[in-house]
Design a protein around this nucleic acid. Structure first.
Lengths: 126, 126
DNA sequence: CAGTATCCATTCCGATACTG
DNA sequence: CAGTATCGGAATGGATACTG
């Protein structure tokens, strides 16, 4: 991503702003929980409690936090049904689905190279 | 990734081991710095200091730490030239290059959806 | 130059308690 | 059920100093 040196022209200013925004977004999503949530959601619609059960190891707090972040960035849609007890459903938006495609790639990669990695770790000495 | 319930059969045990390893690897690489280093390296060979300059914002410590981790997992090759002063070069391995392809996808995604995301954030109220 | 080691502030995150 | 708020311990990460 961007390494453009600063010159001061208006175009450069725009590029730099976009770059810093891109970096911010990248920092948001390039994390374990965010990517796992996106991967778990897939093309399904899940409730909060279903997500907590399926994204194994995630805490209540981390799930809430990451869901807010993903909603803020427009990757998921949050639908609230004002029933008692409340029912809240999460679905990937179009941008979210697009990102999911690349996350799928990462998961595939992980499984394809499991052997390589295990071997490399042994060579490295744990 | 895996949510296989535990049954106790040997096959299940193997699957669970592979799953937990996959999760561990995923945790390693699904981080900002690891992915940025892989993206920056690309098909080039770079020295430690070049990487530190190009991966903007990364500290000496984080670079070292992540390079060790990536080496341990076999994603990069570290070549040391015993000169004075020392020269150390890093290159993506084949697995590393394969992963890079998906990271490229993430970067493309980020730039393609910058507008969407900015708009979504405004809607959300920063 | 490319590390390692240490210190210290900040951030993260889990556990827990509480609300509509 | 699906949150929010708070607290304390653990992990993260930057700055700095030191080494081959």
């Amino acid at each position: 991503m961007g390494t453009t040196p600063f010159t001061g022209s208006p175009e450069e200013l725009d590029l730099r702003r976009a770059d810093s925004l891109a970096r911010e977004i990248f920092s948001d999503i390039a994390t374990k929980w965010a990517l796992l949530i996106i991967e778990t959601l897939g093309e399904r619609t899940l409730r909060f409690s279903e997500l907590r059960d399926e994204v194994e190891g995630i805490s209540h707090k981390m799930l809430t936090q990451n869901l807010r972040m993903l909603e803020r960035n427009g990757l998921i849609e949050r639908r609230v049904y004002p029933t008692v007890p409340p029912r809240v459903e999460y679905t990937l938006t179009e941008p979210g689905l697009a990102l999911r495609a690349t996350v799928d790639g990462m998961c595939d990669w992980t499984h394809r190279y499991l052997g390589h990695i295990e071997a490399s770790r042994r060579r490295f000495g744990t």
